[in-house]
Computed example of a mutant assay.
Amino acid sequence: MGNTGHGETFLFWIGSAVSVLGALGLIFSKKIVHAALCLCSVMLCLAFFYMAQGAVFLGVVQIVVYTGAVMMLFLFVLMLIGIESQDSLTETIRGQRWLAVPLVIGFGAVLLGVYAHANLPAFVGTDAANAKGGGNVPALAQLLFSRYYWAFEVSSAVLIVSAVGAMVLTHKERIAPRKSQREISIERFERWGRGEKVSLTGLPNPGVYAQHNAVDTPALLPDGTPSEASVNATLRGRDTVRGFRPLPLPGQANGKQSKEVSK
Rank of each mutant, 00 (worst) to 15 (best):
H34Y: 02
T90L: 09
K31A: 02
L221C: 09
Q96N: 04
P222D: 07
S227K: 01
T201I: 06
A166F: 09
P206S: 07
S230M: 12
E187I: 06
H6V: 11
L89K: 06
Q257H: 08
M79E: 02
Y115K: 12
I175P: 02
I83H: 07
W98T: 00
K132Q: 14
A163Q: 03
A163K: 01
L89Y: 05
V42R: 08
F12Y: 06
V137P: 01
T201R: 11
V168I: 15
L247Q: 07
A128L: 13
N136S: 10
N232A: 05
A176F: 14
N205Q: 08
T240Y: 15
S199R: 09
A166R: 05
R238A: 12
P246F: 15
V241W: 15
L221S: 13
N205F: 13
V208H: 15
F10W: 14
T9F: 13
L120Y: 11
E260T: 03
S199M: 04
E91R: 01
R178D: 12
M79A: 05
P226W: 11
C45N: 05
S199V: 06
R236K: 09
L46Q: 07
S185Q: 08
G108N: 10
F48S: 05
T217W: 09
Q53S: 08
K263G: 12
L203W: 04
L37E: 00
V56S: 10
D223Q: 08
C40I: 00
P246R: 15
T225A: 11
H117A: 15
I105W: 06
P204S: 12
F10T: 14
A116L: 13
A52I: 01
V101W: 10
G95P: 00
G7A: 14
D127S: 10
V33W: 01
A122M: 13
L44D: 00
V64F: 09
A176H: 12
V61T: 11
E84T: 09
S41W: 01
G113P: 03
A129F: 05
V241S: 15
G59K: 02
M1R: 06
G207C: 06
A214Q: 10
V104T: 13
S230W: 13
G237E: 08
G108M: 11
G251T: 04
K197H: 11
G82N: 03
P222A: 10
L37W: 00
F48R: 02
W98M: 00
I105T: 07
E190C: 09
R97C: 00
N119M: 10
R238H: 09
L89N: 08
A55W: 03
R182E: 14
G135C: 10
R174G: 13
L111T: 01
F57E: 03
L75W: 00
L203Y: 05
